[in-house]
């Protein structure tokens, strides 16, 4: 399946990109995809990064072809 991943904040910075398209085989949940994407990136507190699938906050959902996944870290600047 083909997935579009959108990166935000510190995650985008660590990944050095705002967006990428991934081709993946097999079944996986949004949370598993997050782990795969964040693996190897130097980000503290990966637990704090939230996942939205097709603009809905949800990490338990099983992904399907064409889904858009956003990885949203909290930030606090003002």
């Amino acid at each position: 399946m083909k997935l579009t991943i959108k990166y935000f904040g510190l995650v985008a910075e660590a990944a050095n990109k705002f967006e990428e398209v991934m081709e993946l085989n097999g079944e996986l949940t949004a949370r598993e995809l997050k782990e795969r994407c964040l693996n190897g990136l130097s980000i503290r507190d990966k637990d704090s990064v939230q996942i939205a699938v097709n603009q809905n906050l949800d990490d338990k959902i099983t992904l399907k072809d064409g889904d858009e996944v956003a990885l949203l870290p909290p930030f606090a600047g003002g």
């Binding site: 980000i43 507190d45 637990d47 704090s48 909290p74 600047g77």
Partner: peptide
């Protein structure tokens, strides 16, 4: 409800620029 867990990465405009 959005961010149940905080992060230690408390980065302000002072350090990152804006």
């Amino acid at each position: 409800c959005v961010f149940p867990k905080s992060t230690r990465q408390n980065i302000s405009c002072e350090t990152t620029g804006v």
